[in-house]
């Protein structure tokens, strides 16, 4: 065996994954993020079982208990028709997460695929795809989504479609940028010299190098999709009542400001809580995987 004077420090010997995980768990902000995200997912799944008043999720009316301030009976108060706000928030997370899964489930794979193609093949493919993403970038996403949902009827599916149509471009641009820098590395050419096919180079050599950036971006995006959906319904163009939706609840509660402050503020904070969770987790992942977004 050859003797080489170079040695590796113990830190380098440690496996990539173990080191990364330790970095994530030593980051208190990231742990808070994990706790928040897990709590939201659990709330959404278990809403019918843990909500204090599961029947308040729909078009329930109880005028005797309308506009109740937060109390032990109604931890976050009640709304203008006497429904428990906490229960409606828990059910509202179902809608939010459904939106996240629907939008990112389509937008991320589509964006990644187009980004890979544009960055790898260049030429007309690159020009075409990047022009399209630039067009999409120029229009305020909220305005575009508003226009689309206005032309269609406002509901969850249409919000999903409108947001997806705009969202893939961000992943496309991100992956495109990463691919451009990865393609310049010698290992791509080395794979070509080894006779590898385009398919192998794209998905086995290049894509794994984009995985870190994609996962960070997707995590951060989950929060912003929730924000986006809530903004749409806040403006009256998202999920329609009586389905409990956080944005709709804020808009409805805003009419009773400032006296019945909890009716707008509580669901508002629920949105903030979700975005905060995904953001902290995304930032933690970013530090852990050491990527730039």
């Amino acid at each position: 065996m050859s003797v080489e004077t170079e040695t590796l420090s113990p830190a380098e010997e440690l496996s990539n994954f173990g080191r990364a995980r330790r970095r994530l768990l030593s980051n208190p902000a990231a742990i808070i993020g994990i706790v928040i995200v897990v709590s939201i997912v659990l709330a959404a799944i278990l809403a019918p079982y843990i909500a204090p008043y599961p029947n308040h999720a729909g078009s329930f009316v109880d005028f005797r208990h309308r506009h109740n301030a937060p109390s032990l009976e109604h931890l976050l108060g009640t709304d203008n028709v006497g429904r428990d706000i906490l229960s409606r928030i828990l059910f509202g997370y179902r809608v939010s997460l459904l939106l996240v899964v629907g939008v990112l489930g389509v937008a991320v794979p589509a964006g990644v695929l187009f980004g890979l193609l544009a960055g790898y093949f260049g030429g007309i493919v690159e020009t075409g795809i990047m022009w399209l993403t630039n067009v999409m970038l120029a229009v305020p996403p909220l305005v575009m989504a508003l226009a689309i949902t206005a032309v269609l009827t406002p509901d969850l599916i249409h919000s999903m479609i409108a947001i997806t149509v705009l969202w893939w471009t961000w992943h496309c641009r991100l992956v495109y940028r990463v691919v451009k820098s990865v393609v310049a590395e010698d290992f791509v050419e080395a794979a070509r010299v080894a006779g590898a096919s385009h398919l192998h180079i794209l998905f086995r050599e290049i894509l794994p190098n984009c995985a870190a950036a994609i996962s960070v971006k997707t995590t951060l995006d989950a929060g912003f999709v929730i924000l986006f959906g809530a903004s749409l319904s806040f403006l009256g163009l998202g999920v329609q009542p009586p389905t409990p939706d956080l944005g709709t609840m804020v808009a409805a509660g805003a009419q009773f400001l400032p006296e019945m402050w909890w009716e707008a503020v509580m669901p508002g904070f629920a949105v903030l809580y979700a975005i905060l969770g995904f953001n902290l987790l995304g930032d933690g992942l970013r530090d852990m995987l050491d990527v730039e977004i």
Binding site: G223, L227, A230, S231, F234, G247, V250, A251, A254, L257, P258, A264, V265, G268, F269, V271, L272, I275, L276, N279
Partner: peptide, 12 residues
Amino acid sequence: VTPGFVFAILLQ
């Protein structure tokens, strides 16, 4: 992380 509408409402 603060949604625009939440911040606006809090300011109000």
